[in-house]
Design a protein around this nucleic acid. Structure first.
Lengths: 221, 221
DNA sequence: AGATTGTATATTGGATCCAATATTTCTATG
DNA sequence: CATAGAAATATTGGATCCAATATACAATCT
């Protein structure tokens, strides 16, 4: 008998599970900005004690997804318009560089997959899935850059603002524009034009940021 | 009666204290790569229980300063040459941009302070302090960019490789070159030449990275 | 009534205890 | 003596308990 080697030691701890679940809930917007995160309540939801919950909350705070006050607990972090602008500016810088590094390494298989993600994003009607298809499209290409550290940062920075982005895409027609921009980026990638792909990615992110800021200014008054 | 308002609630928790102490020990190289971090041992050192220690370790892992294995514990993370190269490349990208954004906002006071840090770095004979003066010099200038998110990332990325950098500066004469490059960067800042300051910062970091890689290849065989 | 103080409740931070797993030591056996 | 297996020890992950603090609410005073 032969089985795939599975490293049992990598089985997730309770803290890992809680962390991932809360992270997902926050970036998807299931937990609203400012919402209280009670340790007891979360512990019960996961059938565990508060210890792993506290560990998860501590990690989330390090990533800026929640804020905590001693003896007062944790709330889902809210970002000011300025903070959101900064993060988009940052993402534009990093992701433009990542795609530039990725283009020379793109192979047929990766491009085909990106094409499918791109189409999926354009056709997807379920707004709750846009966030995922968007990530799949971009990250699929980014992987080719072979820069794990960059990707880690990219992921963390997207996590911070994903919630707002999803809300905006759902409530406006911004995703049509995003879909067109994805087409253009993918096209540049297929042609092997790294500089163009980089420029388009930069603009794609800055555009999204500007639209989001307009949307939020309107929403917040 | 009128007293200064002090926010007592900001008093650090045990986990915060342990986290900061371990972070400092790791980036200064007091804890060697691969060294075991026993929860009990650390808890005793800080006169506390293992709970806050575990929280601190969990945070350190999120920042990549340690790696942990379930039921086996934590060790100080080691970086491969490739990982170190990637982080230097990343730092060059970010910090070049940060200094570019900072230059237009630099005022007399900040420049004077940077001058003092620059001189201090050049004259300091105690090698254990180079890491701090180096950070003081760069961060003092970076603050003017008014980009807290960028700075957070800059700090985290420097944390990852600071240990190696300090070892190299101590064992080679690399810091003379670094001191000259600091002078040039500061000079560009004083003149208000953002593009030059950016370029010099980029080269300063890439140079340091290349020297470090040579040093490590030699050391590791 | 409105402000202020005291008390009860809720919640977090941390200590101690137990279970699960890894590592080491010891022992039996060839 | 070397080695496989078992027992002992060490270490981590998690649950429960207690202390510290915050919040909500009632009682009191002006």
């Amino acid at each position: 008998m032969k089985l795939d080697a599975v490293d049992v030691r990598q089985a997730a701890s309770a803290a890992d599970i809680v962390y991932e679940a809360l992270r997902k809930a926050i970036i998807e917007g299931a937990l609203a900005e400012g919402e209280n995160l009670r340790q007891d309540q979360i512990a019960q939801m996961f059938n565990t004690s508060r210890i792993p919950v506290r560990e998860a909350l501590s990690r989330l705070e390090q990533h800026g997804l929640i804020t905590t006050q001693r003896y007062k607990g944790a709330v889902v972090a809210g970002l000011s318009i300025e903070e959101i602008e900064e993060i988009f500016e940052f993402r534009a810088l990093i992701e433009a560089e990542v795609i530039r590094l990725a283009v020379p390494n793109l192979d047929r298989k990766t491009l085909d997959l990106a094409r499918r993600h791109c189409d999926e994003f354009g056709k997807e009607s379920d707004s709750s899935k846009w966030g995922e298809t968007n990530r799949n499209f971009h990250y699929g290409l980014y992987e080719a850059a072979r820069r794990p550290y960059y990707l880690q940062i990219v992921r963390a920075s997207l996590d911070r603002i994903d919630r707002y982005l999803r809300a905006q895409l759902t409530l406006t027609d911004g995703m049509k524009r995003a879909a067109r921009e994805h087409e253009a980026i993918l096209d540049a990638c297929v042609r092997g034009n790294a500089d163009l792909a980089s420029l388009l990615t930069r603009d794609h992110i800055l555009d999204a940021g500007r639209s989001l800021v307009v949307f939020l200014r309107d929403q917040r008054g």
